[in-house]
């Protein structure tokens, strides 16, 4: 469904020096630097797959998404999406794809989202009966009935994001690019959107490429991930292997109810197979191997006066950082 070969995008960036004198000088002599935002990447995504697209900020994720949707012209390489060359901007192509950017809105700000939906109905030439059926489907799935007729500027971020998804999926694209769809949303809202994305994929066999900084999004939705860093693809494979390999530790954060001696705390943690990262009463941070974390927490709960305990995966950023710093490039690339 998506085929990418040797894809490269080079930006020519005007180098600006700070300061007034430098700005005057740049009037006469401009310096340019070439930056490869995407640097020779290859991958294929079959129909109906949800793939997570990961990488630190500025790694080239969004640029790749923009190349795949035809917003940008590639400097070199081949892209085929659903049998189309995206940058030719054919309407038949645009009717099959969609791009949702968490930080950019395609809803019209001053009028209710339902009006944007009506515009999409005409622009995508959706028959009236299907339009109604789809709006009903979305309204039920996303609980929209109370927000659809409010001006978009009065919606909360989460409500707006739901409407963004509807606007993007109303024409029922079979290829969907989601760029940070859950950014800035609370946990419940993230969960709701995740469930929705999952059922859209299941109901319509949609091929989905998703970027997110939230580990939970990626692990709930994607079996396969692509990791990109500095414009290069450094990992393409199962998510379970990525986490196991690059982040064997989990972090436990505890709040203690009474002040306990450091040595006692350290002994308890050591007994459970963990390590104290920081102890500053009442907060205690412990790190332990993924497979022993349940036993370790149980031990800490019995041996220490614990008020609160949370177990977290390391942030996706840090997993990717680890993947990159451990030189995963060579061994993981297919």
């Amino acid at each position: 469904m998506i085929h990418v070969e040797g894809l490269t995008k080079i930006y020519r960036v005007h180098v600006r020096q700070p300061g007034f004198v430098a700005s005057l000088r740049s009037l006469f002599h401009r310096e340019y630097r070439e930056v490869a935002a995407v640097d020779g990447i290859n991958f294929d995504i079959p129909e109906g797959q949800i793939v997570g697209f990961l990488g630190p900020n500025g790694a080239g994720k969004t640029t790749t998404m923009k190349l795949l949707t035809g917003l940008l012209h590639p400097t070199s390489g081949r892209i085929e999406v659903g049998g189309f060359v995206p940058f030719r901007q054919q309407n038949a192509f645009k009717k099959r794809v969609s791009l949702v950017m968490g930080q950019k809105s395609q809803l019209i700000w001053d009028i209710p989202a339902s009006e944007t939906f009506l515009i999409h109905k005409e622009i995508y030439e959706i028959p009236a009966a299907s339009f109604k059926e789809r709006i009903d489907y979305f309204t039920e799935m996303l609980d929209l009935s109370l927000i659809i007729d409010k001006p978009v500027r009065q919606l909360s971020l989460g409500e707006r994001m739901k409407c963004e998804l509807v606007a993007a999926l109303l024409h029922r694209p079979d290829i969907v690019f989601l760029d940070e769809p859950t950014i800035g949303l609370d946990v419940n809202m993230q969960e709701a959107l995740r469930r929705f994305i999952q059922s859209y994929n299941r109901d319509y066999k949609a091929t989905i490429l998703l970027t997110s900084h939230y580990m939970a999004d990626v692990s709930a939705l994607c079996e396969r991930v692509l990791v990109i860093n500095d414009g290069k693809l450094i990992y393409d494979g199962a998510i379970s292997k990525l986490i196991d390999r690059f982040s064997p530790m989990k972090r436990i954060t505890l709040v203690l109810g009474a002040k306990i001696d450091t040595s006692v705390v350290e002994a308890a943690v050591r007994n459970g197979g963990g390590r104290v990262v920081a102890y500053d009463y009442p907060q205690l941070e412990v790190e332990g191997p993924r497979e022993e974390v349940t036993g370790l927490s149980a031990k800490l709960l019995t041996e220490l006066p614990v008020i609160d305990l949370t177990i977290e995966d390391p942030s996706l950023e840090s997993v990717i950082g680890l993947a990159y710093s451990e030189g995963a490039a060579g061994e993981s690339r297919r």
């Binding site: 949707t69 035809g70 622009i123 995508y124």
Partner: peptide, 12 residues
Amino acid sequence: EGTFSAKLLRPF
């Protein structure tokens, strides 16, 4: 500012 993208993505 890149807000042109939303219009460019639509088949109109």
